[in-house]
Amino acid sequence: MTADTSDRQGGDESVSSVELENQVFGDNPTEVRDTDHYTREYVGGMVEKWDELIDWKKRSESEGNFFVDQLRSRGVRTVLDAATGTGFHSVRLLEEGFDTVSADGSPQMLARAFRNGMDYGGHVLRVVNADWRWLNRDVHGEFDAIICLGNSFTHLFSEHDRRKTLAEFYAMLSHDGVLIIDQRNYDAVLDNGSGSNRTYYYCGEQVSAKPDHVDEGLARYKYTFPDESEYFLNMYPIRKNYLRGLMRDVGFQRIDTFGDFQDTYGDDEPDYFIHVAEKSYRDFGELNDD
């Protein structure tokens, strides 16, 4: 993602993405299908309310130890949280003893994450404003694991951007590293309008998150908060097997896909899919094709 400092709000003077308080979608919101629009969506007003949507305590209960167990089972020590958001997973990983770097494309999200790190246990997050497509330029070092959670990958609207991002992830991993990336169950959303029960990911009971427009090239969601304020996110509805195919094309070997943290599920049941992709080279017979 990119931190574009030349965003314009209507016809006014140039406004830094750090300063934006209101979302800017133009006259036809459903025409906004651009990766670089990201920083005009996660603006100050929405960032300040984001934790109401997540509810850290309930989110922690719903996830359990899934991510921690996946990382520990592979001997992971260093982690890049590539979609830090307001810091939920970065703080959780730091508390569990992982050496964690926190990156995000939204400077406003990173500022909130840093404050949350201090508020939740006095953790000083190492934050980096990074564009995934040039991750090796913005973030230095090699990692045992990269996590990209919160449906963030679907902010990439072109296949070129998606392939470039996955290649950047792959290059920053150690030889036996692992990528954990999640996505909403867009197969269910596109095919039958389901997949929006919000059981595990968005745990804030007073916040509504509903599809506002869905087609094969756009999933636009509306988030309504208790004070009746409304915010929108435009995302590309990536299908599960399409993303698995992209990861294989980039070079990831074994890929295990979980539905709402379970390894057995019906295709329409999960709200989210979580892909655990290993970089370590395997013989053809060891690969899975689930």
Score class of each variant (00 low, 15 high):
residue 75 G to T: 02
residue 284 F to M: 11
residue 110 L to V: 12
residue 90 S to M: 12
residue 72 R to Y: 07
residue 41 E to Q: 13
residue 162 R to C: 13
residue 223 Y to M: 10
residue 104 D to I: 07
residue 100 T to Y: 01
residue 43 V to C: 09
residue 212 D to S: 12
residue 99 D to Y: 10
residue 44 G to Y: 05
residue 271 D to G: 13
residue 26 G to F: 09
residue 175 H to Q: 02
residue 22 N to V: 06
residue 103 A to K: 14
residue 133 R to P: 00
residue 11 G to F: 11
residue 165 T to Q: 04
residue 161 D to I: 01
residue 147 I to Y: 02
residue 6 S to K: 15
residue 261 F to I: 06
residue 97 G to V: 11
residue 23 Q to L: 06
residue 263 D to C: 02
residue 111 A to P: 00
residue 254 R to W: 13
residue 26 G to M: 05
residue 254 R to M: 15
residue 28 N to T: 03
residue 30 T to Y: 01
residue 216 E to V: 15
residue 75 G to P: 11
residue 117 G to V: 04
residue 16 S to L: 10
residue 95 E to N: 04
residue 105 G to P: 03
residue 23 Q to E: 05
residue 194 S to F: 13
residue 181 I to W: 02
residue 141 G to I: 06
residue 133 R to A: 07
residue 139 V to W: 01
residue 223 Y to Q: 12
residue 29 P to F: 08
residue 271 D to H: 14
residue 187 D to E: 05
residue 45 G to Y: 03
residue 254 R to D: 15
residue 136 N to F: 06
residue 275 H to V: 09
residue 152 S to I: 12
residue 260 D to M: 14
residue 81 D to T: 08
residue 214 V to T: 04
residue 68 V to P: 07
residue 36 D to K: 06
residue 171 A to P: 09
residue 171 A to I: 13
residue 166 L to E: 01
residue 95 E to I: 08
residue 19 E to K: 03
residue 45 G to Q: 07
residue 108 Q to V: 09
residue 32 V to R: 01
residue 44 G to S: 08
residue 177 G to F: 02
residue 2 T to K: 14
residue 99 D to L: 15
residue 217 G to C: 03
residue 69 D to L: 07
residue 232 F to T: 02
residue 24 V to L: 02
residue 89 H to G: 04
residue 124 V to T: 05
residue 38 Y to D: 05
residue 79 V to M: 08
residue 237 P to G: 06
residue 173 L to I: 10
residue 241 N to P: 15
residue 232 F to W: 08
residue 58 K to H: 12
residue 265 Y to C: 04
residue 289 D to Q: 14
residue 150 G to I: 03
residue 191 D to W: 04
residue 42 Y to H: 07
residue 283 D to W: 04
residue 53 L to Q: 09
residue 6 S to F: 14
residue 87 G to P: 02
residue 204 G to R: 06
residue 171 A to F: 12
residue 173 L to V: 08
residue 17 S to F: 01
residue 31 E to D: 03
residue 165 T to I: 06
residue 128 V to W: 10
residue 94 L to Q: 08
residue 67 F to Y: 15
residue 184 R to W: 11
residue 257 T to M: 11
